[in-house]
Design a binder for these strands. Structure first.
Lengths: 248, 248
DNA sequence: CGAATACTTGATTACCTTCAATACGCGTGG
DNA sequence: CCACGCGTATTGAAGGTAATCAAGTATTCG
C-alpha cells in the first residue's frame, strides 16, 4: 500500500477503525503524489478545483487576502489534513493554500471521492468528521484572535501546533519543525510584525519556549499552556489510539 | 409534511435538488419540535448530546467561554441551520448554543441521522455540504476579527446577517430582526461594549444603517457593503434558485 | 560577497480598553 | 401608581496595548 493511502486511512479512522473492506477500497484509491517546494500557492482563492489535496508531509496554511492586501492565515495543516475538501461541495474556493515548507501532497479527483462516498458511507462519514474537527479549530481561532491579548494568543497557537504534531509523532522532546516567519505569525494572529517580535521576546524571556530557525521548542510546557489558556479538547484528538498512527 | 421537515429538506437541497425518494425519507423523518424562550442555553459546552438541533425560526448564536469569563460569539444561526451537527461525530461539545430570540427548534436523534446518512448518501452529502458552508463562514469571521478595524468589522457582520436572512426571505426593504444587544455585538466582534457603542454611532452617522430595538435596517446598502469590505461569495449561496425556498 | 529576506529596536501615534457616571426602558412588587 | 432593580445604552476621561514609522542588524542564499 502506498504511504499516501495509509495516511488517508489513518486520517479517516480518527474515531472508529474503518471496516476492512473500506480500508481496502482506500488502499487502491487513486492518489496522484506530488512534491511541492516551499512558498507555493497550491490552491488559490477563486479557483474551481476538480481535485482535493491531502497533505502527506510538511506544513501548509490556508489564508484569505483582503482588498487592501492584508492577509489572514486561518489555519495550519499538518500531515493527514485535507484542507480543500470543501471544494468537493462548494464550487469556488474561498481561500488559498500555501506550502510553508517543502511538502509532499496527494491529489484526489472529486469524481473519485464522490463515487467512494456514495458507495461507502463509512468513508463519507470519516471525511465529514475530519471537516468537523477543522471547524472546531476555526472556532477556537476566532476566539483566540477575538479575546486573547498578544502573549496568550501566540502561546495558544504554539500549543495547538505542538499538540497536533505530537499526536502524529512528529515532535521530539516538546520540539517540532515550525517553518514560519514572524510575518507569517503576524498574519495568523492578527498582529503587526513588530508586535509579534516583541511578544516572542517576552515569551522567550519567560522561559516557556525557544523559537529559532523554524524550530519551536516548549522549554516549559505547563507554563506555555498556562500562558495560552490552552485546553486541547477542541482538537478532538482520540487518545485511546486503537490504531496508534505514526506517520512515516 | 411538517414545516420542520420542509425546512430541513430546503437546508439540505442548497446545491442540488434531492432525489424524490430522499425527500420522502426526510418528510417522515422524526423531528421533535420545541419552543424555546429567548436567552436559553440550548446546548452547553461540555455536553455529550445524543441529538442535534435544527433552528426552525428565530435567531441563535454559538459561543465559547474563556477561563476569565470572557465570551466569544463565534457564529449566528438562521432558520435551517444545524449548529451542533458536529455532535454527531464529536463526543463532547466544544461550544454552547444560545437562543437570541424566542425560537422554534427541532431535535433529531443521532441514531436516526446516522441511519439516514448510511442508507441515503445524498442526504449525508447534503449535511456535509452545510457544515462546509459553516466552515467557510468561520474562516471569514477569523479574518474579520483579525484584520478589520472596528467600523469595518461591525459593518461586515451586519452585511452577513442581512444577506443570509435576505436569502431566506426574512428581510423586508433591507431590514431584518436582529435581537442582539451591544454586549452581544461586543462579544461577537471582539470589542468592548463601549467601543461597540461608539462604532455604532459612527455607522449611524454615516447614514449606512439604522439599528434600534433589535431591528437592523441598511439605509444605504452599497455604502454599508463598502464599509465592511463585504463580498458575499464566502456564503456560497445559490442564486439560481432551482427550488426557490422561502421559509414560512 | 552582495542582495534579499528576516529579525530587532526605538520613537511616536492611535485605536481601543477600562473606569466611572449617568440616563433610559421595562417589569415587578409594595 | 410609584419605587425599585436590573439590564441596556450613552458619554467622558484616562490609560494601555498594539500599530505605524523609521532605521539598523542579522541571516540566508544565489
Amino acid at each position: 500500500m502506498s504511504s499516501a493511502a495509509s495516511i488517508l486511512i489513518a486520517a479517516l479512522s480518527a474515531k472508529t477503525k474503518l471496516p476492512d473492506e473500506d480500508q481496502d477500497a482506500l488502499a487502491s484509491f487513486p492518489i496522484e503524489e506530488l512534491e511541492i517546494r516551499r512558498g507555493q500557492d497550491i490552491i488559490r482563492e477563486g479557483d474551481r478545483p476538480t481535485r482535493s489535496m491531502i497533505l502527506l508531509s510538511g506544513l501548509t496554511c490556508s489564508y484569505k487576502t483582503l482588498p487592501n492586501g492584508n492577509r489572514q492565515i486561518t489555519a495550519f495543516q499538518v500531515p493527514g489534513d485535507v484542507p480543500d475538501i470543501q471544494s468537493l461541495h462548494l464550487d469556488v474556493q474561498d481561500n488559498s493554500i500555501l506550502s510553508m515548507s517543502d511538502c509532499r501532497v496527494g491529489f484526489m479527483r472529486h469524481r473519485d471521492i464522490h463515487e467512494l462516498c456514495f458507495s461507502r458511507p463509512p468513508i463519507a462519514m470519516g471525511f465529514w468528521r475530519a471537516t468537523l474537527v477543522d471547524t472546531a479549530i476555526y472556532r477556537e481561532w476566532t476566539t483566540n484572535v477575538g479575546q486573547r491579548p498578544a502573549v496568550a494568543r501566540m502561546a495558544h497557537l504554539f500549543c495547538e501546533v505542538l499538540t497536533r504534531l505530537m499526536h502524529l509523532g512528529l515532535t521530539k522532546d516538546y520540539s517540532c519543525a515550525l517553518p514560519v516567519t514572524q510575518v507569517d505569525l503576524a498574519d495568523a494572529l492578527g498582529l503587526s510584525v513588530v508586535h509579534v517580535n516583541r511578544t516572542l521576546m517576552e515569551l522567550r524571556k519567560s522561559g516557556s519556549l525557544r523559537f529559532e530557525r523554524g524550530e519551536l521548542t516548549a522549554l516549559n510546557w505547563p507554563l506555555l499552556a498556562r500562558q495560552g489558556q490552552f485546553d486541547p479538547s477542541y482538537l478532538h484528538l482520540q487518545m485511546d489510539d486503537h490504531a496508534p498512527y505514526k506517520l512515516v
